[in-house]
Design a protein around this nucleic acid. Structure first.
Length: 570
RNA sequence: CGGGGCGUAGCGCAGCUUGGUUAGCGCGCCUGCUUUGGGAGCAGGAGGUCGCGAGUUCGAAUCUCGCCGCCCCGACCA
């Protein structure tokens, strides 16, 4: 490809809206262009990277015996109704001219399960894993940071079908390994985390995180075992012995007019927030539960749901809170509550004599003691883990930020059950197929790579997914000998199968260097002032200096370097 | 959805507080000459519904109201 005939809309100035480095570089390098919030064009350079990523994913899928198909973007609404996912909030609903309802595909469990129930009837058809690479649509409440979170994005989604859990484990582990290989070849180091399953549902699941400050997820890593977990999921250890109430004065109801929030109450009563208990009322199935956490902590609703053995908990409506506590939201407390199961965070055992809501408007108790003024039905770990918290292993949890580039799930029979995707087990019994699903963010991974590989001057692509492997710059496009030499190298490299761009634009040399650094080609060849002596400069993007090389050996040497890099990431 | 910020040429910005001729600047773009290894110099030029709509006023980029869009923080997140 000749740059003079290509599309390289690089920007000298930094677009004001981009705050994350990788987002800025992708915009400046002319890889992507925003169309609207969370919606992007992939310009030619960006598309090249996307296609290279896809190609690596396909190769690894093939190694793992996964079979590619392509499902529709228009998902019939009735299928989502079968699994209850017609209520999912990020759905993009639409209708055809006859009024028939669809949703733009946000993930394809329903369609793939529909395919399974139509074609997979026998244990002889299993196991099998099918996958696609496709644009997904999710009406995200807050798109951010370019391709990190968008309303549409490119994703690989794979689905495994097995006769039982043991086989599913095998499929799961095989895909886990395939993901490891994919990320390795993209140049991404990932930390695998235990995670929450969210609306996808199911049981065992793991996230693949690229650790970087620009990430939007919080990951906690046990410094003793190295095991990591998403903050939504992370368990907290520590041994707590219950502190008694000796010497603590009797609980006393005090006036706290209009003080509802932790901040308002603690500043009014002049106490630290860790001396206050937040009482959060939730519905868990048909049960009413009061969850107690320290004033300076956050309840983790996922964890609470898990402790209670339900799929999810929902914060109570304010009318229900009033009915149960007799007071407005903001004044709930554990003393005198009835018909409510009280579950308290472990950490609360370590102190006593708290400030709690009075279950009367504008009143709170001080010196409230568990074991004296109110009874805790269960002590559990129900709060959001923080940096420095004790790990279950006895180590300490340390927080890092991460970009979630992959998420794999064991679904069990969640979809096959509700959609009746059954198979004959060979002994005359019909059973639901055991499923797994595996998502890898293609566009998000692209940006994660940029986030990890860049410097002040621009992007530094790994050879495996660089938009071009080599750029050949003709320093002065009007100098015939330079242009001739550049074209010769260009055609030689092309012939050797190297992915090369010839920068023959009539820009000044400096501008072409700046563009090359910004765009981030791994290797740069410059045909310039060395040409009269039969030499050109070769330079790696990640190195400070290049070296002059005789033209005769340049082609084969560069080809070798490229091929070496390729095998490293093959 | 809550909080904050922004919307003026392709990009980055000034002007708005205190309304007043033809709305500026830098980069980019076009033409010419010179230059040609780290985003060149000089000269000339094109490019604007000042986000949209109402209102106030003799007069609105500027003041008021409504709407729309974009960014950041939070909530949410498959």
């Amino acid at each position: 490809m000749r740059a003079s005939r290509y599309f390289l809309p690089t920007l000298r100035e930094v677009p004001a809206d981009a705050t994350v480095a990788s987002h800025r570089l992708l915009l400046r390098g002319g890889f992507i262009r925003q169309q609207s919030a969370g919606v992007y064009n992939y310009l030619p350079l960006g598309l090249r990277v996307i296609e290279k990523i896809k190609s690596i994913l396909r190769q690894e899928c093939a190694k793992a015996n996964c079979v590619e198909l392509l499902m529709p973007t228009l998902v019939p609404f009735e299928l989502l109704e079968e699994t209850g996912r017609d209520k999912v909030e990020v759905l993009f609903p639409t209708t055809d001219r006859t009024g028939r309802r669809f949703a733009l595909g946000f993930t394809h469990e329903e369609i793939i399960t529909d395919i399974a129930r139509n074609y997979l009837h026998s244990y002889r058809d299993l196991p099998i894993t099918l996958y696609q690479i496709q644009t997904k649509f999710r009406d995200e409440p807050r798109p951010r940071a370019g391709l990190i979170r968008g309303k549409e994005f490119i994703m690989l989604d794979a689905y495994s079908f097995d006769p039982d859990d043991a086989h599913c484990d095998v499929s799961y582990d095989r895909m886990w390994h395939a993901f490891d290989e994919m990320f390795r070849r993209l140049g991404l180091e990932t930390l695998v985390c235990e995670a929450e399953a969210g609306d996808i549902g199911g049981g065992r699941n793991h996230e693949f995180m690229v650790i970087t400050e620009a990430g939007e997820d919080s990951v906690l890593r046990d410094d003793k075992t190295g095991i990591a977990a998403n903050a939504e999921r992370c368990d907290i250890g520590g041994n707590y012995s219950t502190v008694g109430h000796d010497g603590i004065p009797a609980a006393e109801l005090v006036a706290t007019p209009n003080a509802r929030s932790v901040k308002e109450v603690t500043s009014l009563l002049a106490v630290d927030s860790h001396r206050l208990i937040k009482t959060l009322l939730v519905r868990a199935g048909d049960r009413n539960v009061a969850a107690l956490v320290r004033g300076d902590r956050d309840l983790n609703p996922h964890k609470l749901a898990r402790r209670l053995g339900v799929e999810r908990v929902a914060m109570m409506e304010s009318s229900d809170v009033q009915r149960i506590t007799g007071a407005d939201v903001g004044f709930a407390g554990p003393i005198g509550l009835s018909g409510v199961e009280i579950i308290a965070d472990n950490e609360l055992q370590a102190q006593n004599g708290y400030v709690v809501g009075g279950n009367v408007n504008d009143k709170h108790f001080v010196n409230a003691c568990h074991g004296r003024d109110f009874k805790v039905d269960r002590w559990e770990d129900i709060r959001v883990a923080l940096d420095g918290d004790p790990a279950v292993s006895g180590g300490v949890l340390r927080e890092v930020r991460g970009i979630e580039v992959g998420h794999i799930f064991q679904l069990g029979t969640k979809y096959s059950g509700s959609m009746k995707a059954h198979f004959d087990d060979g002994e005359g019994k019909e059973k639901p197929i055991v499923m797994g699903c595996y998502g890898l963010g293609v566009s998000r991974s692209l940006q994660a790579v940029v986030e990890v590989y860049n410097d002040e001057a621009g992007i530094i692509w790994p050879m495996s997914i660089a938009p071009f492997e080599v750029v050949v710059i003709v320093a002065n496009a009007e100098d015939e000998s330079q242009m001739k030499a550049g074209e010769k190298i260009y055609f030689d490299l092309l012939e050797q199968g190297v992915d090369v761009l010839l920068d023959d634009r009539s820009e000044r040399a400096g501008a072409k260097f700046k563009d090359a650094d910004l765009i981030g080609y791994p290797l740069r060849v410059v045909c310039g002032r060395g040409i009269p002596e039969g030499k050109a400069e070769v330079k790696w993007r990640h190195e400070e200096r290049g070296e002059d090389m005789p033209l005769e050996e340049l082609g084969s040497k560069v080809t070798n370097w490229v091929q070496n890099e390729r095998t490293k990431s093959a």
